[in-house]
Design a protein around this nucleic acid. Structure first.
Length: 247
DNA sequence: GTCCAGGAGTGAT
DNA sequence: ATCACTCATGGA
């Protein structure tokens, strides 16, 4: 993460770490955020209560912007193992090796990916996303201020900038807002969250494609119900998806 | 082989 | 504004 290889191990309430200093670990895991207070704020109903019981301790990390952006561009209409393959392929081909860690490569910077052609990205198993990724990388790099300016924008302004990028739609934009830009009220709607909202919260989301207006309705519901930490609510519901979606 | 995955772009109504 | 169609890939 961010050019380092950090190893973490938890036993009880004790967290062991190596590969980074304490301030990095605290920042990446957002240990400065009072988790109990956050969970109390979103614990508004029995469904959320069950998700919290299921996942207590889960945190929204603070991911580097470019890494997060490309990762979610690789995550559209696919599954987690495939995304992991893509991210690892990008890292091993374009990322700097982490010193002292033989096989481990960092996620590449935007500059490191500048030389990657669409075919190169296809070779990293991005499939049809390779064209979007190529353009998104070029767009980010065309504005020297992009990566430093976007984190300073408001939620809505940053979302608009993300949506300008090809291959980044509402879902991926909301994930970047939440996991990289610290907008903890972002509420991404994926197929699992959609299912959970329909089944447990009676949100009208008939099956079939999730249209932009339905996406917006689901997003508004989540943000309205769970408030400033709606993103945490989303993460806990997602984490409990196996529990909440069975039968 | 078929179906589903942390969706999004395009082009026709 | 709202369909219908298409887009690689991997795991079950």
């Amino acid at each position: 993460m961010d050019g380092r290889c950090v190893r973490l191990r938890q036993d009880g309430s004790l967290l062991h770490y190596s590969g980074a200093d304490e301030s990095f670990v605290r920042h990446y895991l957002a240990l400065d955020l009072d988790l109990d207070r956050v969970l109390a704020a979103i614990d508004r109903d029995p469904v959320m209560g069950a998700a919290i019981s299921c996942c207590r301790g889960l945190r929204v990390v603070r991911q580097p912007l470019f890494e997060c952006l490309l990762s979610y561009l690789c995550a559209t209409n696919t599954n987690i193992p495939a995304v992991r393959h893509r991210v690892e392929a990008l890292a091993s081909r374009y990322g700097e090796p982490v010193t002292g860690e033989g096989e481990i490569h960092a996620f590449p910077s935007s500059n490191a990916l500048l030389g990657a052609t669409e075919d190169d990205l296809r070779a990293c198993r991005l499939g049809y996303r390779a064209r979007f990724a190529r353009t998104a990388i070029a767009t980010v790099l065309a504005d020297a201020e992009w990566e430093t300016a976007v984190p300073l924008l408001s939620h809505d302004e940053a979302r608009a900038r993300l949506l300008d990028l090809p291959g980044i739609g509402p879902k991926a934009a909301d994930c970047v807002l939440l996991y990289a830009l610290g907008h903890l009220d972002a509420f991404p709607i994926d197929v699992w969250i959609r299912r959970i909202l329909a089944r447990h919260y009676r949100v009208e989301l008939e099956d079939g494609p999730l249209s932009p207006s339905l996406y917006e309705a689901a997003r508004a519901f989540g943000r309205d119900r769970f408030g400033p930490y709606a993103g945490y609510a989303q993460v806990y519901l997602y984490g409990a998806r196996a529990l909440l979606c069975r039968a």
